[in-house]
Amino acid sequence: MLEIVNYLAGFAILASVYAVLALGLNVHWGVTGLMNIGIAGFFALGAYTTALLTTPPPDPAKFEQFVFGGNLPGLFQRWGVGGDLWFLAGLAAAALVCALVALLIGLVTLRLREEYLAIVTLGIAETIRRVFLNESWLGNGSRGLYQIPKFLGNLAAPWLYDLLYAGVALALLLALFFIVERTLRSPWGRVLRAIREDEVTAAASGKNVFRFKLQAFVLGALIMGIGGGVYAHGFRFIDPFTFDPLLATFIVWVMLMVGGSGKSAGALLGALVIWGAWSGSQLLPGYLSNPNLRYLLLGVAMVLVLLLRPQGLLGRR
């Protein structure tokens, strides 16, 4: 019984993380038409930022190679701030770092032809992964960070933590969902959609296309950074291999395309459906659970959606 509960809790945590990433991608691609294929990069930056800020300092006895662990929970305790508020500080920092990186990328690429953003995001994700792999003083190299603290760990027995955290992740996801929905329904969101549909007309009606794109790119990246942070405290272990382009970029794209690009609800539904199919097929017997077969099906799913139902499950033409 407990096993099943924990399995479902783990599923819910990951599905929520993916839903947050898909929510961010929806701001980029679905609403504004920006092709970000470096989701893994923002995911990694967010996760490493909060992980490094909250992990205890390295212990020479364990031959840990990284030099900085912020130990925010300890600091907050010393400052007399209770209630595990360090968690929100970590998430805020994760969002901030991703927003800054997105700002730099956007400044370089968003004035140019749209394809350049795709190429640059692909490159930045790969570079970030290599930096965390090679610079072991930064993030403990390939051994990764494994002492990421629990959020509200005192409230639940260790075997119930996943369940508790699944609730936290879902609550955060819903909060983000409503904030993003609200934002996208505002006049600002309408301008983004206008840019996606026809950049020239948007510019002709006096909108600064570059600036709006930049804001949308930063907003989406910030959301992805929060997704990374939520992941880090849920699994409490990250290493560079976690942020492989396949499972950290491509699957999010499939989720958004299947769910319905342009709609936040589509992002949520896609995350649930695809993550359900992905983790469900792990349980299939024999060759059916072969990861390569499942990768192939993901690729085929992506192409089929584009060919047969570009609006996804929830979208309209």
Binding site: M35, Y295, L296, G299, V303
Partner: peptide, 24 residues
């Protein structure tokens, strides 16, 4: 007449499918 960026997306799907096929 899909937008160039949609074609690029499709090619990303093709890339992962081809890679998976090679690995299979």
């Amino acid at each position: 007449s899909a937008a160039p960026i949609v074609m690029a997306m499709a090619s990303l799907g093709v890339a992962f499918a081809l890679r998976a096929l090679v690995q299979m």
